[in-house]
Nucleic acid binder design. Structure first.
Lengths: 302, 302
DNA sequence: CAACTGTTTTTAATTATTTATATACATAGT
DNA sequence: ACTATGTATATAAATAATTAAAAACAGTTG
């Protein structure tokens, strides 16, 4: 009952990390400074210090705080205890939606689902409210929720909207002055793509975050909160998509890297026509991949 | 404590309305049918019937339900009791944001605000979560909320995004076959605009809903849930905007109607260039009006 | 026997309560 | 004096409890 102490546990583990980097016998900084370093309030810092003292990892009296011995892994809170409910729920829920064969437009039973996900009905409800902005679940006026599902229609509408936004970005991008920071970012992205391509056999899983970075960078030139909001939806969908759709993963990513490189080159040429074609080509591939992962369940996972 | 009985009260008032249209002595239909008519469960219908019986408006035994006398206004639940908390909150909150001079990026104090709005902190929290999709408030990772506010930047980004979407719709619309339902809807809208223009002196306030209808119709051709979602945000913003910014209201609406008529004509000509110009012209005006209502508070309200 | 009502059970939404965390203020130490 | 700590208070986020509403089931009646 009552709020969880995830923040305390996370802060404690973070504190252990920084203590591990210090030699035994060193003095710790003041509560206020530690609080700022950990990004939490002094209340939490004091609770952490109390626990550290009780565990005889530090000595603490007044403003003298000395490290007695380096902490080890067993002192930490286990990771699964630290993970907040809302993060767990996103994984559980999306896994449930994307991997199992729930029919579209199913009415959701909150109390039943919350038991399955081992959380309170309220926690699930909060999650659904936040999540409803993505259009995969919807709240009924009469009360209750329906799962609209990650259907082929959803993938198509998502892709169409995405293409509209990204082409707008591209049009704006190619007209930007050469001293705009985006050009440097593109240079860096190009280097990272080439580096990844060289070790594609072992590092092909790293493509996912590179894909995210490229599209986020391109859309950043719009400097528009609605674009950013939509891009974050795209990031989430593709994050889980890459995570679970392992079929032809290496080949797919190799092709995508080439498309990205062509895309970057076209942008750097600052030729609107060329950039548009390259953008459309890559976005079409992405759309196809996404679409293939909806529909039949057997196209999901290897 | 525990959930409100708004649904019951609303259903009761609705039932009174339908009883008022019936002659005394007539038999009511079955619980199941009444439930379907009112859009509620049988549980509510039975509660409503019980109250009606207690008030001697109907007699009820077993399956015989007879109307004894026509109900009058005093039998109803007062309207303000019926209005649900979430609806009230939207009004209160937007009025607070748009009319008072709250500085952008202010940290919101949920418990304080909830007292001002006379609701529980939790109800306000629920509202904020739902409302955050519009980008006017934002949840901090560390906890708590900030009001980003209805600033000039917000108005600009909103308008830019809107223009991108609506131009996409227009491009798709002018290419549609003549038997597509949108053409009939545009004909009807044109008639309604002309009718409104003839009585503009008295009916100028009706423009707001007409504006909403036109843009919703145009964007409906995309048949995309993300477009619909964004259009509903636009509708909300303009709804409150029209409601509170009364300066030059009649003149403004007269101009807008002409722009709408030109816009509709251009669409009906099915000429992409003409339609694009008309769209841009009207959207630019809308952007200016919206922008003028941000910034200085004295531009708000007469 | 089909439609309707009576009764019970399940699910949803809201408030109250509790614990965690943040912040403000007063006091002590260097 | 400044800065750190000790203490008190305010605010946030979670659960638990409570009531409304829906749905399921069983029994009745025309």
């Amino acid at each position: 009952m009552a709020r969880t102490n995830d923040r305390y546990k996370t802060a404690f583990n973070q504190m252990l990390d920084s203590l591990a980097a210090m030699p035994a016998g060193s003095e710790l900084s003041s509560e206020t400074i530690l609080a700022r370093q950990l990004g939490v309030s002094r209340t939490i810092v004091r609770a952490v210090l109390e626990r550290l003292q009780k565990m005889r990892i530090i000595s603490w009296r007044g403003r003298r705080k000395k490290l007695l011995k380096s902490p080890d892994a067993s002192d930490r809170f286990p990771d699964d205890e630290v993970e907040s409910v809302s993060v767990r729920l996103e994984e559980y829920f999306l896994e449930w939606v994307l991997r199992t064969d729930v029919a579209p437009d199913t009415r959701l039973n909150v109390s039943l689902l919350s038991r399955q996900f081992s959380c309170t009905p309220h926690a699930l409800h909060e999650f659904l409210v936040r999540f409803s902005r993505f259009g995969i679940v919807e709240r009924l006026k009469t009360g209750g929720w329906v799962l609209r599902g990650f259907t082929a229609e959803y993938a198509i509408e998502l892709s169409e909207f995405r293409e509209m936004i990204e082409l707008t970005s591209v049009r704006k991008l190619v007209a930007l002055a050469t001293d705009h920071p985006v050009w440097a970012q593109l240079d860096e992205l190009k280097r990272d793509h080439i580096a990844l391509l060289e070790h594609i056999e072992v590092r092909y899983r790293d493509f996912s975050s590179l894909d995210d970075r490229l599209h986020t960078t391109i859309n950043s030139v719009q400097d528009n909160r609605f674009t950013r909001e939509f891009q974050s939806l795209i990031s989430m969908i593709f994050h889980y998509h890459y995570q679970w759709n392992k079929r032809w993963e290496r080949q797919r990513n190799t092709v995508a890297i080439s498309e990205h490189l062509a895309y970057i080159d076209a942008l750097q040429s600052r030729n609107w026509q060329a950039a548009q074609s390259a953008a459309l080509a890559h976005l079409a591939t992405a759309r196809q991949t996404l679409l293939a992962s909806t529909g039949a369940a057997d196209t999901l996972v290897s």
